[in-house]
Amino acid sequence: METLTNEKILVIQTAFLGDAILTLPMIQKLNAINPASVIDVISIPSTSGVFSASPYVNKIYVLDKRGKHRGFKALNRFISELKKNKYSKLFSPHRSFRSAYITLKLRVKDSYGFDNSSFKYAFRYNAEYKISYHEVRRNLSLIGENTDDDNWKILPVVIVPDVSKEKLKIYINNRNLSKGFIAVAPGSVWKTKCYPKEYFIAILKSLASDNYKLILIGGENDKKICNEIADQAGRDVLVTAGEFSIVETIGLLKYAKLLVTNDSAPTHMGMCADIPVLTLYCSTVSRFGFYPYNDKSTFLSYDELDCKPCGIHGYAQCPIGSFDCALKLTPDFVLQKINDMLNTHE
């Protein structure tokens, strides 16, 4: 992409947490192209903290699409405020109709979206959405970057505030975790993305028997599943779900030896922390482009199934009732990979 001179840039990303994190490398590259440019972001309430922790974002405009900005009248008021900023460029990794509508109404001179956007004609320029690309690579192609080699593997930068670092240091010291621990993230919005609870319990019991320190991480909505697993896995398993913010959890992961997670946002939080991540694919597959991509990480997936993948996100339950994509990915197989990774990186 050509050098931008004192541009006012708007990035629209109102999707889930993982999508927000994977937008950060694109923003970092935009800043590198010209540090004098101002980059603002439209986010949803749950992801605003991630963009606030980026040193490359000037201002976050929170779009509460299920609350105060619900409906066209409220959305148009939100857009009217944005118009005052007179943006010269707009990039929308998010492909929803709402993002396209915002783009149309703002009438930014140069707007960029993907060719599979819900309304691609809202954008002056359309980039090809290559399903075989990693999401980071796709987003970099949106801003015109050449990604023919591994130069696309830019890790997301999230700055943990000093007050949060001190909070985490106290937590680590009080629980004798300074030599590291294994983090496990068992939750997901999509149930068919979730590795079976009883399998996680078996894995944690095995790791505990080898004297590894163990922490179950997640958000407020993951507290129930984390506590259920901890109760059955052993009294020494810690739970931080709901205790730390997203940015604080990224700070906590910097102390971890390894993160084991579903195909969900913690995979990408692990990339922010630049630690070894093992992602377990149940109903989804790595070729959708959301796998861990630093040199320390990998994934496991049982792919010998005609029904897999059954969807790009997942479902509340297995569409055919078998859930073989998860059940055939046995704890013994996962434990073997965990031990291989620990032996490599310790």
Rank of each mutant, 00 (worst) to 15 (best):
S322P: 01
A326R: 13
Y133D: 03
K165F: 00
L177D: 01
C272L: 00
D274L: 05
V285S: 00
L329F: 00
P156H: 03
L204T: 08
V277A: 03
K165M: 03
T249M: 08
N227H: 11
V157H: 08
N151G: 10
T330W: 11
V50S: 06
Q317F: 15
T261C: 05
P25E: 01
C310F: 10
L10A: 08
E81Q: 13
T23Q: 00
K257A: 07
F114K: 01
E346C: 01
K223L: 14
K328R: 05
A36D: 14
I229F: 07
K65L: 13
D295Y: 14
L305Q: 02
L252S: 11
R235F: 09
F16T: 15
K120R: 15
E228H: 09
C226M: 04
L204P: 01
F97G: 09
R95V: 06
S37P: 02
S43A: 11
H268I: 00
K193V: 07
I27P: 06
S54P: 12
G311T: 07
I27D: 04
D236S: 14
G144V: 02
D332P: 11
V334I: 15
P266S: 05
K109P: 07
E346V: 03
A183I: 12
P309M: 13
I225Q: 02
P292G: 09
T249R: 00
S96N: 04
L17Q: 04
G218S: 11
K84R: 08
I170Q: 06
N151Y: 09
T103Q: 07
E220M: 12
I21R: 08
S111C: 07
F123S: 12
K73P: 00
H134L: 07
L168S: 00
S48W: 05
K169S: 11
I12E: 04
L24A: 03
S99Y: 03
K153F: 04
S111G: 07
S80N: 12
E346A: 03
P156G: 03
T147Q: 06
H69K: 10
I102C: 12
K169V: 01
D64I: 08
T344A: 13
F123Y: 15
D19V: 05
D150P: 13
L253K: 02
S52K: 14
S322H: 15
T3A: 05
T14F: 14
P309T: 09
V41W: 07
I79N: 03
N173I: 08
D306T: 15
G234A: 06
K59H: 11
L140D: 06
